[in-house]
């Protein structure tokens, strides 16, 4: 996932500028002293300067983006694995309150293991046993209110 330092640096310049711009409407303290805006402005400014330097150094060193890797992404099984992780966590966030931890947690683990070539039966058993154990430890012993969803336990 390598990107050229020139681009990375430029990204930080932009981020710094955005942070600075975001503070323009902030209120000031008595007698016009800067208040809430002081630190974000310093940080944004420094970020832009550092980013600029990284960009310059990258340009001089002819640092380039690994374009081949980027273009081949959709064919890379490892990349799909990473996407499954992302999708799993996202699905968890949006569905767990409806389905409950016992179902959603087991589904996420199962999908991931299945994708990582664990035999499906084994994956299903491990997912259910492990997830129930986690639920018992966190929800029952530590009293973390894991969402119950459609279940009651």
């Amino acid at each position: 996932m390598k990107i050229s330092d020139t681009v990375v640096g430029a990204g930080f310049v932009a981020a710094g500028a955005l942070i600075f711009a975001g503070t323009l409407n902030y209120p000031t303290l008595e007698a016009g002293h800067p208040g809430p805006s002081l630190f974000p402005r310093i940080l944004g400014g420094l970020m832009a300067v550092f980013g600029g330097l990284v960009s310059l150094l990258g340009l001089r060193a002819r640092d380039v983006t690994d374009e081949v890797a980027w273009l081949r992404l959709h064919k890379n099984p490892a990349f799909i694995n990473a996407l499954v992780v992302l999708a799993g966590v996202l699905a968890y966030i949006f569905l767990v309150e409806h389905l409950g931890f016992l179902i959603m947690g087991a589904l996420v683990i199962f999908t991931l293991m299945w994708r990582l070539q664990v035999r499906p039966v084994k994956a299903a058993v491990v997912a259910i046993v492990f997830n129930t154990l986690v639920h018992f430890l966190f929800a029952k012993v530590l009293r973390v209110p894991l969402p119950l969803g459609i279940l009651w336990w």
Binding site: V121, A124, I128, L151
Partner: peptide
């Protein structure tokens, strides 16, 4: 078959 097993287990539990 894994999926079926998994889902049926879920149904059972629920």
């Amino acid at each position: 078959s894994g999926l079926i097993l998994f889902l049926s287990a879920l149904v059972l539990v629920t």
